[in-house]
């Protein structure tokens, strides 16, 4: 095999030579060929139809969501999260208004309504908050720069949740169109809104879901390049093992659980 000519253009990312790759794998295969008498070992069994399996799981949980929500609350509070309950999505602006008032927060950056579910913007503005809504679709560089700017100075970031894991009190957020990574990262307070349809029980079930999200081929329908699992506020214990919150990410994470489903 011959090495392909390397791109010399400066604005193009460097491309590894085919020769380097061939050689790299050759060495691995040579060493693998020297191993003898290994016990045969198997990786984890994969669910044959993960999408159906997780759908069944979530349907079952939807029937007894109160228990799962309670478990989530217990674990979420254990890792330092603040749990709020709202009967319907109409009650959410009051909850967020309350959180903002207590923290003297005025600037809110929020996921696009298409990603969040409801459009809470007008109701939050009505409660005296300054709200920046990020654009959906494929808006381009100007909007990207703006979102970065407003996220860096916002007091509160408002996002949805794709999945909430009860066992660990974890919020799972997928990035994508209208759902920037930085909304749950840069502001000192993160507020995440979700309903019973987002609940799952365990990390094992998350495995089903992660498999389902990638089968058949990664669907490019607006999904981004990052999946984030958030288990409590940002923390460190690097100075004399003293637990301190909000080192780089948010100091506070709020989960607003809406009992009546609002997502389609």
């Amino acid at each position: 095999m011959t090495a392909r000519a390397e791109s010399s253009s400066n604005d193009r990312p460097p491309r590894p030579s085919i020769a380097a790759r061939t050689e790299f794998f050759e060495r691995i295969r040579t060493e693998m060929g020297k191993t003898r008498g290994l016990f045969s070992a198997r990786p984890a069994a994969r669910p044959p139809r993960p999408a159906e399996a997780i759908e069944t799981v979530q349907r079952q949980i939807a029937e007894r969501w109160r228990e799962t929500a309670q478990r989530f609350q217990r674990e979420f509070e254990r890792v330092g999260g603040v749990f709020h309950r709202a009967a319907t999505i109409k009650d959410v602006p009051d909850v967020i208004g309350g959180i903002a008032r207590e923290r003297k927060a005025s600037r809110v950056v929020t996921w696009n309504p298409a990603a969040l579910g409801p459009d809470l913007g007008p109701d939050l503005v009505a409660r005296g908050l300054c709200v920046d809504v990020v654009a959906g679709g494929n808006p381009g560089d100007v909007e990207r720069a703006r979102v970065r700017g407003v996220s860096a100075v916002a007091d509160l970031g408002l996002t949805g949740v794709d999945v909430a894991i009860a066992e660990t009190g974890t919020l799972v957020l997928r990035s994508g169109a209208g759902r920037p990574r930085s909304t749950s990262l840069l502001p000192p307070t993160h507020v995440a809104v979700f309903d019973p349809t987002a609940l799952i029980e365990s990390i094992a079930q998350l495995g089903l879901l992660l498999e389902a999200w990638h089968v058949p081929a990664p669907a490019d329908g607006g999904w981004g390049g990052m999946i984030t699992l958030i288990t409590g506020p940002s923390r460190t214990a690097d100075i004399e093992l003293t637990l301190t919150r909000g080192v780089h990410g948010p100091k506070e994470v709020h989960a607003v659980f809406v009992e009546a489903p609002f997502r389609g």
Partner: peptide
């Protein structure tokens, strides 16, 4: 490592920013 059930952040990175993404 630390006795946590999960660390605070588990980040799954899948390539560069995709169309429509506002950061990454």
């Amino acid at each position: 490592a630390t006795g946590q059930r999960l660390s605070v952040y588990t980040t799954l990175v899948q390539g560069p920013r995709r169309p429509g993404e506002l950061d990454g």
